[in-house]
Design a binder for these strands. Structure first.
Lengths: 139, 139
DNA sequence: TCCTACATTGGACTTTGTCTAAGTCAAGAT
DNA sequence: ATCTTGACTTAGACAAAGTCCAATGTAGGA
């Protein structure tokens, strides 16, 4: 995410402390925070930041294609900054840990023509589920 | 879902009018209703049925493995009665229509060992996205 | 028929997210 | 350096989706 702010500014984004802090929170690998988690972490750096601003900023980052929305549990959406590298998700059924993974082959090709019902396919999302090493040994 | 009620009774389910009605609503192909939709349709058959009962009953059906929870849009969960036939979902990006589909091959095998991070895989969920024929021609 | 454990109910409550009116400020213009 | 202005932020009200609970009702066995 290092050059993210520059990229956004060149697209006409006004650079505010709030947006800087949200971008900073989203920096890293295997980051999949909920909006509330982003808000909590952002508030450590900038205590006055409001929930609405976090929601706004996340929404803008998604629209701009810089961040992906992931909903692996039907609860709160999670935000994945790794949008520039196609990937899927591996989720622990017990503790909820999420890892980015890279399946082999062309996933779209897996759906035969007669199973497409005339749809024009554009994307595919895959969620692998299982037990992570810690949860598997813990019983 | 015809023999569903018998199957459930043999598992110790108490058979009430409310549960019968919820099961009836979930009967059919390509059914993916939200809890609220199930409640609305159930209320046509049994006006006094409460939202809490619909949520309870759906939750029980999911625990018993008779119905699957699907969340394709990050909003309300949807309930898919087609739980005894493995399948995936094809969703229209514009109108939200959902179809059950059957991809070819072993989906779990698509994730290489070095991408499994030591997880013991047990399931995979795939959502194909694209435009349905109606939305594609509508522009 | 009666009993009772299980099921249902309505409403309060929680979580997650959206909206708005009023105030604030980044960045270009002067 | 200061001004100006439209974009940004804020707090809090609101909405949607779902959970919880105490009181009431009832399916099905005795």
């Amino acid at each position: 995410m290092s050059d993210l702010l520059e990229r956004l500014r060149s697209r006409g984004w006004r650079l505010t402390a709030q947006r800087r802090v949200v971008a900073e929170v989203l920096d890293g690998d295997h980051v999949h925070y909920t909006a509330d988690e982003v808000h909590a972490k952002a508030a450590l750096l900038l205590p006055e930041i409001s929930r609405a601003t976090v929601y706004n900023t996340l929404g803008e980052l998604v629209s701009l294609g810089e961040v992906l929305e992931v909903s692996t549990d039907g609860r709160a959406k999670r935000y994945d900054p790794n949008a520039h590298h196609a990937h899927q998700h591996l989720v622990c059924s017990r503790c909820g840990t999420i890892r980015d993974v890279h399946p082999a082959g062309d996933l779209l090709a897996g759906l035969p023509a007669e199973e497409r019902f005339g749809f024009r396919l554009s994307a595919v999302e895959v969620t692998y589920r299982g037990l992570c090493p810690e949860c598997a040994t813990a019983g």
